[in-house]
Design a protein around this nucleic acid. Structure first.
Length: 510
DNA sequence: CACTCCTTGCT
DNA sequence: GCAAGGAGT
């Protein structure tokens, strides 16, 4: 009886899981293992919102495995040591795990390899979390180790061959002796945001299905920012309007791997998943086989091709991969400036400390910023455009260190992901891959563009819910009497002064 | 083939 | 203003 270990990390799904598939293919019995990582907890990364979501994911995984005759094996402690222990107990000769990019994940992989080797068990690493592409397909020319700008990366990414999605296994046999801890319960975690989404593969698939059923994919990237003509969603993240919020909200599922990015990309573009890029498949001799083309899914029907919405959605998936390939090449970008500008950010004390606290609490007096920060508190999630506004406000308007803001986001975001979060913050702070480091997003013009009717602000800032239309973005322009009624702060900073301060600081340092 | 120059397009 | 890629040297 041969035994393999499938070590789940950020791939908590049964469908399209190359780690699980490889483990099953190489053995009669598989230990589907998850280790509650003491190092992640010690680093303060296991915050309530993600712990609760993770608990849902593990419960769903266990349920799915039980439907197939197996179960999840849960351990806690040091990942390398616990995996090696499980390998010894079950006599496993092979363990499979997903490749990941953060400095921590890279070290974890090495420690795993070493600990497993002592147990006589080989480690096999699979591309399951990160890349929509075959590994190595998106390497820049000229001897560079990564792409530093998104657009050239995206061109390469889009043209490369895609991994073929796998189905869920039909049966999973787990060795009887493999002991497991009791699964944690999401509803027992303290300090969770009241509006937190549910985790798990089924919840993820339901959200994806419901979002597409609502026609959101076709409308994606089209609303709110007045873009027109081809490629109009360029300046938005592909989802303009904050109030309508046509975003998919799939980011937590992508972070925990309850949904496969490869599968989402294929389905969004209306591909069967049987073929990669048309005409580029290595396996099929004849290009453009009719049988494959006829298997197009519903997203591709009735409109000749996938459409701009699907392209904008897939582009967002590419951003994840882009950030991951930056972090893989520059792991220190999680804490160090990618492109340093010699910033001397205001220290978090005195006036600056009060302003940063106001930002965290959503009491800056700038309604769109406060709405964003309160959505984060309440849902453990924030609209992507709002993230950029909130980050720009902290780093440029308050001139506070991006690490302060990134830490606050990681403390609350259910999709809190080192690669995406830190590099998006660096982008906003002008220390990242942005080629325009001095850009300052003006919260008022941004509000007019992305929340033209003020719906987003009224939803999240109840003090202002009585103010109609776009006037909600400028409560200080109300007459004295109306303003006295509001329990809402005056703006904590003057935008023009803040802009001058930032410009002066940047030019002094260069 | 390494290097510079030039065009293109921006989360 | 600058990354990327391609053409030219």
């Amino acid at each position: 009886m041969s035994v393999s270990i499938a070590l789940f990390t950020a791939d908590l799904r049964l469908r399209d899981n190359p780690v699980l598939r490889a483990a099953l293919a190489g053995a009669d019995e598989v230990v589907p293992l998850f280790v509650l990582d003491e190092a992640v907890a010690a680093a303060g990364f296991a915050v309530p919102n993600r712990r609760a979501f993770l608990a849902d994911c593990l419960a769903a995984l266990d349920e799915g495995l039980r439907e197939r005759g197996g179960r999840l094996v849960l351990r806690a402690g040091d990942v390398a040591r616990e995996t090696a222990r499980a390998a010894r107990e079950c006599g496993a000769r092979e363990a499979h795990v997903a490749a990941d990019v953060s400095g921590y994940a890279q070290r974890r992989e090495e420690r795993l390899r070493a600990a497993l080797a002592e147990a006589g068990c080989a480690l096999r690493v699979h591309d399951a979390v990160t890349c929509v592409l075959a590994p190595g397909a998106e390497v820049p020319s000229g001897g560079r180790d990564h792409f530093a700008v998104f657009t050239p990366y995206y061109r390469r990414w889009r043209a490369a061959e895609w991994r073929t999605p796998l189905g869920a296994p039909r049966a999973v046999r787990v060795p009887e002796g493999a002991g497991s801890l009791e699964l944690p319960r999401g509803d027992r975690v303290e300090g969770v945001s009241p509006g937190l989404a549910a985790g798990g593969e089924r919840a993820g698939r339901e959200r994806w299905a419901a979002w597409r059923r609502a026609g959101a994919l076709r409308a994606y990237g089209g609303s709110g920012d007045g873009n027109s003509g081809a490629g109009g969603s360029r300046r938005g993240g592909g989802q303009g309007d904050l109030g309508a919020d046509a975003t998919s909200r799939l980011s937590p599922h992508l972070h925990f791997g309850t949904l496969s990015p490869v599968e989402l990309a294929h389905e969004a573009l209306g591909r069967s998943g049987k073929s990669g890029k048309p005409g580029k498949s290595v396996t099929s001799g004849e290009s453009g086989k009719v049988g494959e083309v006829s298997e197009v899914g519903e997203a591709g029907r009735g409109g000749g091709g996938a459409g701009p919405g699907a392209e904008a959605f897939v582009r967002q998936l590419a951003w994840r991969d882009f950030h991951r390939q930056v972090l893989a090449a520059r792991p220190d970008a999680a804490h160090a400036d990618y492109r340093p500008h010699g910033d001397r950010w205001r220290r978090e004390r005195g006036e600056a400390a009060r302003e940063i606290a106001a930002w965290r609490e959503g009491r800056t007096g700038y309604p769109v910023i406060d709405a964003a920060m309160r959505q984060l508190q309440y849902e453990g999630w924030m609209h992507n455009r709002a993230r950029l506004l909130a980050a720009s406000f902290l780093t440029k308007t308050l001139y506070a260190d991006w690490r302060t803001g990134a830490a606050h986001f990681l403390a609350l975001l259910v999709d809190g992901d080192v690669a995406n979060n830190q590099l998006n913050w660096q982008w906003a702070a002008g220390t990242g891959t942005d080629t325009r480091p001095n850009r300052v997003l003006n919260p008022l013009t941004q509000a007019r563009t992305y929340d033209p009717n003020g719906d987003y602000v009224r939803r999240w800032v109840p003090e202002l819910s009585g103010i109609g239309g776009a006037a909600v973005h400028r409560p200080w322009q109300l007459d004295e009497a109306a303003r006295a009624e509001l329990e809402y702060p005056e703006p904590i900073v003057d935008l023009d002064e803040a802009r001058s301060r930032f410009r002066a600081a940047r030019s002094a340092e260069e």
